[in-house]
Each structure stands twice: as C-alpha cells, then as structure tokens.
Design a protein around this nucleic acid. Structure first.
Lengths: 148, 148
DNA sequence: AATCGAAAATTCGAGATCGAACTATTTGTG
DNA sequence: CACAAATAGTTCGATCTCGAATTTTCGATT
C-alpha cells in the first residue's frame, strides 16, 4: 500500500483548512437568529467592524464575494430593512451601505449567540498559538493570491 | 482608534483560512476543463485517491457535503457518464460509485491542468513548513468538530 | 415472522455563488 | 467638446448548498 498524495503534508494542510472553514461556517450558521444566513451575517459583521458608509465593491473585496453575489445579499438585507442604501453624492455609479438600527440589533443578537463559542475557543487555545500560526497562513494566502 | 476584534490573532487566523480556502477553490475551478465544476472534481478526486467502490455516504462524509448535496453532484456526473452507479448487493439501501473510463480521463485531464500550480507551490514552500503547520490546524479542526 | 427504529438515498425549496453580459456613470485623451 | 476606456452595480442562468421531509431497506427485538 504505497503512500498516496493524501499523505503529503501540503495536501493535508489544504484538507484541514477546507475542513476548518466548513466547520466555522456551519457552526455559526446554526447559531444565527432565524432569518439570517451566514453571508448576510458576514456582511453585517464587516459593516459593524469597518464602520458603515462603505461601498458594495469594498464589501465584496473584503469578503471575497463577487459583485453579483453581493448584490443578491444586499438586496435581501435591504428587504429586511437591516441595511440602508444611499446613492453616493460625488459619484453616481457608487452606492454606500449603512446598518439600520434594526440591523445593529440583529447583529448584536447574532454576536450574542456566537459569543459563548468564541469564549470557549479562547479557553481551548492561547493567543500565542494563533499568533504563531499566522505567518505561514499569511504567506500561503499571499502566494496563492499573487500567482493567478 | 482602539483595537477592534479584527486585530485579534484568532480572528485573523480564521480570516486567513477563509481566504485560503476561497483562493484554492477559485484557482482550481478556473483551471478545470470546461463542464467540470469544483465539487465534481472533488468527488472524482476522492474516487481516484480512495479507490472506487465507495458509497455516497462515505463520499459525503469525506468531503463535508450533505447527502442531498452529493446526490445532486453524483447525478450530474452520472449524466455525463463520468461515474458508474451500482446497487450494492449486500445492502439494498446502499449504492456504490465507480469512475468510468471517461471519468478517469476527465480526472487525468483535470490533474494535468492543476499540476503546474502544485509544483510551483512545492517550490515556494518546503514540506517542513506544511508539516509544522499541521498540528495546530488539526487541533483546531478537532476542537471545532468536537464541540457542536 | 411481524414490527419498530435506524440507516441510505432522494426530493424539494430557499438561498448562495459564479461568470458573462448589460447599463449607467465617470475619467482620460485627442 | 467628443468619444473611448474604465468603473460600479445589476441581471440572468447554471450549479451548489443546506435542512427538512420522504422512501426504501436493513437489523434487532419480540
């Protein structure tokens, strides 16, 4: 029984990364208040972290979403009145997104649902462990992003 | 300007992981022969690595797909005659999946398209770097998977 | 042997995701 | 100024993804 490619450390690393990404996505999804999906939460999370008043294109780039994919998500958030969409004054092509009070409330509710898990995580691992893992992950991400 | 949560190493790690996963997915997707999607490739990759003759449930578990999602992908692969679906003799509920010769050819063609990038990667990083990154990633994945 | 509960797969509906084509606006250049 | 190229966003079609409900088959208990 010879060693297949699945034994190579690089393949294993990508498998683990795929698995972790999936676990994070499903774990958070299941904890979100009903009516909120994971991408919707991600958008609101960015609006909350980065401050409102950013454009759809900035959001799409920050979250690795396509413009068309983001249009879809923004339309749904807008339909639920969780975001407010303004037309940019200086540039007629651009729009600017804001969280509404309802949006902030839904976001706070989501974070509250996730917080216990996050705190568990910070008990299970040290910040040093995360810090030590970062350089390689950043290098890998940069390398993958630079060579199209 | 206080430190937001985005500065925390743990948040950064998850951001990098999300980014890497996305880059791998899109990079491979764009290199695949026309007509093949990334999930379809993943299934064929597993069939090729793990050997044929495995059941849909085993595939779904290995690839973190839901059974219903896999049914969809298998139906498409079957429609293109890239896989062969048998009814298990011992167990009437189960099916067993095989790559057809066409499937093997399509898989070989996909791997050939991806190989240069993989070789570049093995030039850009050492196997030791991947090996050193593994324990933390495995621990993180296990922890996330154990606490539902 | 009859039945009940678990397991494997499918169907269905809602939402996400991508890429290509399209519209509208702005910017740069002659 | 006119017009070409670039930019921001949307629309559309195909596929993926999930969860819930359903069907079929198996296995164990009685």
């Amino acid at each position: 029984m010879g060693a297949g490619p699945e034994d190579h450390p690089d393949v294993q690393v990508f498998d683990e990364i795929r698995y972790i990404e999936h676990l994070v996505r499903t774990t958070i999804s299941r904890k979100l208040p009903v009516g909120l999906t994971y991408p919707q939460f991600e958008v609101m999370n960015l609006l909350s972290r980065r401050g409102d008043g950013i454009s759809p294109l900035e959001i799409a780039r920050a979250l690795q979403m396509t413009k068309s994919g983001l249009t879809n998500t923004l339309q749904r958030l807008h339909a639920r009145k969780l975001i407010h969409v303004e037309h940019c004054e200086n540039d007629g092509r651009r729009k600017v997104i804001w969280l509404t009070p309802d949006g902030r409330a839904a976001y706070a509710q989501s974070m509250a649902a996730i917080r216990p898990k996050m705190e568990d995580l910070r008990d299970g691992f040290t910040q040093k462990e995360f810090r030590d893992a970062l350089p390689f992950l950043k290098a890998l991400r940069t390398w993958l992003g630079e060579k199209p």
